[in-house]
Simulated assay, not measured.
Amino acid sequence: MLLTENEKQPVAIVTGAGQGIGFAICRELMKQGAAVVLNDLDAELTTQAADQLNKEFGKGCLGVPGNAADVTFINNLVATAVKNFGKVTIAIANAGITLFGDFFTYTPEAFQQVMDLNLRGTFFLAQAVARQIKEQQTGGSILFMSSVTGHQAHKNLAAYGMTKAAVEMLAKNLVIELSAYKITVNAIAPGATLTERTVSEEDYESTWSRLTPLGRPASPEDIAQAAVFLTSDKARHITGQTIVIDGGWSSISPSPY
């Protein structure tokens, strides 16, 4: 094992974590003493991210590249976490894809790609981790990544928005299935967030600073801190809930168009 097994140490799997919100979540988890299995589709990005965190914290991050929409890979990811750290207690289904497109011309191929990662990957990661936690009898936490687009209509994001609304319903439904095993399941719904992807978009920061009541888009750390709280013992009586993190945007919903 990479670490001496510690009964009290959280062990987390975070998908889509090579950069942005997922990477910030891994960092915040490790600040709190967790061991982390960091996944990303991009193998080079996975290695760089894990190396950076291990340099910061000494040890405790294992990078595992692969497709978080593939069920065989998901099952292997959980097995790898258990092999290296002895258990899994937290899963954060952060991997997702946003494919903009006009409703009238949206292709079946784009639709399937969004469904596979955002829904299939989320559902089966939750299933695999819940099975492991049930077997361990340790309790644990599962967190889904939703979006404000699951609450408010957004131009050219019909397929994406429906997946995000769906994962919030999944969090509610799994309360029935998982509570007996002391597994909490929640979702967070970020609004505009400054990541490596969005910061390169023209006028993104200035536009969302103007539209957001608190005066700025979120940072990845804003989202990560909420994620770490919801998967910690401090939130052990919170389950089936979605927390919107958007600086107040969805309360008044000014259009970006």
Rank of each mutant, 00 (worst) to 15 (best):
L3S: 08
T4S: 14
Q9D: 00
P10V: 11
V11P: 01
V14Y: 07
V14P: 01
T15H: 04
F23H: 14
A24V: 07
A24D: 02
R27D: 11
E28L: 11
L29A: 08
K31I: 14
Q32D: 07
N39S: 09
T47D: 03
Q48G: 10
D51F: 07
D51P: 01
L53P: 00
E56K: 15
K59E: 06
G60M: 08
P65Y: 06
G66H: 10
N67W: 00
A69F: 01
T72W: 01
T72N: 12
F73Q: 11
I74F: 01
L77N: 04
L77T: 05
A79H: 14
A79V: 10
A81Q: 07
A81F: 06
G86F: 06
A91K: 07
I92P: 00
A93I: 09
N94F: 05
F103S: 13
F103T: 12
F104L: 10
Y106N: 12
P108W: 00
A110R: 05
F111Q: 13
F111A: 14
Q112A: 15
Q112V: 08
Q113T: 11
M115C: 12
L117E: 00
Q127N: 08
A128P: 00
R131Y: 00
Q132W: 02
K134F: 03
E135G: 07
Q136T: 03
G140I: 04
S141Y: 01
F144V: 03
V148A: 02
T149M: 13
Y160K: 04
Y160P: 01
A166T: 05
V167I: 14
E168I: 15
A171T: 02
V175W: 06
I176A: 15
E177T: 10
L178M: 09
L178T: 02
T184H: 11
A187Q: 08
P190M: 03
G191F: 03
G191P: 02
E196F: 00
T198F: 13
S200P: 00
D203L: 12
Y204R: 13
E205Q: 12
L211M: 06
L211R: 01
T212Y: 05
P213D: 01
R216D: 09
S219Y: 05
S219D: 08
P220L: 15
A226L: 10
V228Q: 08
K234I: 00
A235G: 09
R236A: 13
I238S: 06
T239Q: 06
T242Q: 05
I245E: 07
G247E: 03
S251M: 04
S253A: 15
P254E: 03
P254L: 10
Y257M: 10
